[in-house]
Simulated assay, not measured.
Amino acid sequence: MSNLVSCQEKMSNSIYDKGFVIKDSLFYYNGNKITINESIDHFVKVIGKPDRIITDSEKVHFDKSWKWKNRYEAFENYEHKIIVSAAKQNNDYVDKQFNTIGDAVKELGQFDEYQNEKDELEIRQFYVWDNLGISIWVEKTRVVQVNITLLPPAIFRGFLFEDEDPEFKASFPKKLYSGEFTYNEKTVNLKSLKNLEWENFIKELDITDSKFDPPGDSKGWSREIRASDDLYAIFNRYKTTNETSPKIDVISSINIFSYGKKNN
């Protein structure tokens, strides 16, 4: 694949020629420079043709609301019921539910204002490389996030809700990533089961310091590399807490994304 990218995008040092690499604020795969938010076409040139492309779209959402000048406001909830809020003099609110806006009008009188805001249909795609254990989340042909799977999909799906959409469930690769991951000259070979153990992994990659703590109170459950606003990496932990279950404490996945502005 090296003939498909310019020499300027190819790293010459052999330590970076295998697997994923974060060096300073740059991101590479097999020595080829890649950038979050760029076109998926470049990733395909570097990684190769995906095994599957999963398309997932959210339903169009209508935000309906009504107002009565004499203090009433109403909106339609996710069950398509009409919720009317009546303001009291002490600024408290009392909600009342109606089956239809017609039922509300019969009791409250004709409304004075009506709004119907339509959200855009959000379409996202997942480019999946089953044999590599990699999937890429894409919106409008641009890469949003690179996902590296290190935990068997059957266990991963246990994290999901029963009603999670089937397209999202299908976005997990069928096999696990077993290549290398390098951060500032510290390399972990993820083909080794020992290196998948959480404590071994963060020690080998040298990300035990508090500067790699995630925000909030979940410091024990992940590590973060904040290379730049355009390059973040989150290392997710999977640990069994039930004493009756087999003891497992491993890295489950790596997510690489950007907090910078999206390209349009």
Rank of each mutant, 00 (worst) to 15 (best):
S258L: 10
F212L: 03
D206E: 11
F126T: 07
Q115M: 03
I36H: 06
K18Q: 13
R71T: 08
N3L: 12
I34P: 02
D17K: 13
I251W: 01
L132M: 14
E197L: 04
E79G: 00
K203Y: 07
K81G: 00
I207V: 15
N3P: 06
N263H: 10
E38T: 03
S14N: 10
K169A: 14
G109T: 02
W198I: 04
V84G: 07
G220F: 01
S39G: 09
V21H: 10
E76C: 09
S6C: 07
I254P: 01
Y177M: 03
Y78S: 03
F159H: 12
I155W: 06
S39N: 14
F43W: 15
P215N: 03
S222W: 05
S178Q: 15
E79M: 00
Y28E: 08
W129P: 03
L108W: 03
K174R: 13
I36N: 05
L26R: 13
Q110E: 14
V250M: 02
D249T: 01
S14G: 01
E197Y: 06
I136C: 09
E107P: 02
K88H: 11
S2Y: 12
K96T: 12
N236V: 08
I15N: 09
F172T: 10
Q97G: 00
F172S: 13
E113D: 10
T240H: 12
S25N: 15
W198Y: 11
K45H: 10
E199D: 14
E185V: 05
I40K: 08
F201W: 07
W221P: 00
S85Q: 08
L176F: 09
K69C: 01
E139G: 01
V5A: 06
G31E: 13
K106F: 00
W66F: 14
T240N: 14
N37I: 01
G102C: 04
K23L: 15
G109H: 06
T244Y: 06
